[in-house]
Amino acid sequence: MARPGPTGPATAQPTRRGGWQRLRRDWTFVGPAGLIVLLLAVAAIPGLFAGFFGHGDPRACDLHSSQLGPRSGHPFGFDLQGCDVWANVVYGTQSSIAVGLLATAISGTIAVVLGTLAGFNGGWADWLISRLTEVFLGFPFLLAAIVVLNSIGQRTVLTVAVVLGLFGWPTMARLVRASVRQVRSLDYVLAARTMGLGTWRIVTRYVLANGLTPVLILATISIGTVIVAESSLTYLGIGLAPPAISWGLQIADGSRYFQTAPHMIVFPSLFLSLTVLSIIMLGEALRAAFDPKRLQ
């Protein structure tokens, strides 16, 4: 993983500013970034967007309208209970984004702490953390999450995010370790050490500040992965449960009535895919702009 060479972070430094300048003119960055800002706004104040067509309450349902297709005032139609699909899809954004951000924050924090400990200290700490990382990489992420979530009675946005965060850190930790190791032996870190700066200050101000870019890019992509995992688990009946509003639940409901009411599954699937697509494209655009290997 660690591949010290002529393209270390020392040379990445001057390209960083260039990266931002290129990004602002690159539609593969501006497009997804704009969509994500919009989605974040939807997640923060769903009420504003849900009421766009005049029927903003996701829980205002009328069984007379069950499974009715799109019509004026209800562009996405009605679900089985006769609730407005548009309002439900808008409110579903909140759970997905919340789980994605929270779980990634948890796994990112674990990854940075463990990765830095391993990469900066070396020795037995490195050995132990590396083995621990391998162990957690050894079994499928989804399987571990299913086992743990199954024994938790009350599954909320918080518990699902914590479980996904606790199992999602190994790849990121490896990356942190690799970039910390790379930065650790650079001259300016040695200079800081000879100046008598403490380890904590060196790590936070010098090592992490320069070694964190690849991790932030991976974390961006990881938000998308977590959102997919949450909706998959919810679809399997082991993630969020009603009365929570979630795309996974809507897709699970919709899959049973595809022939009579395809709109019930199509719209939440579309929103889910668009969200994941914009997050992953943003991550790829960042990677293309900042990855020194691609700049050669």
Partner: peptide, 12 residues
């Protein structure tokens, strides 16, 4: 493939 979750693809 990178954005449509496998369960959505499966169900559809």
């Amino acid at each position: 493939a990178s954005c449509v979750p496998v369960f959505v693809l499966g169900v559809l």
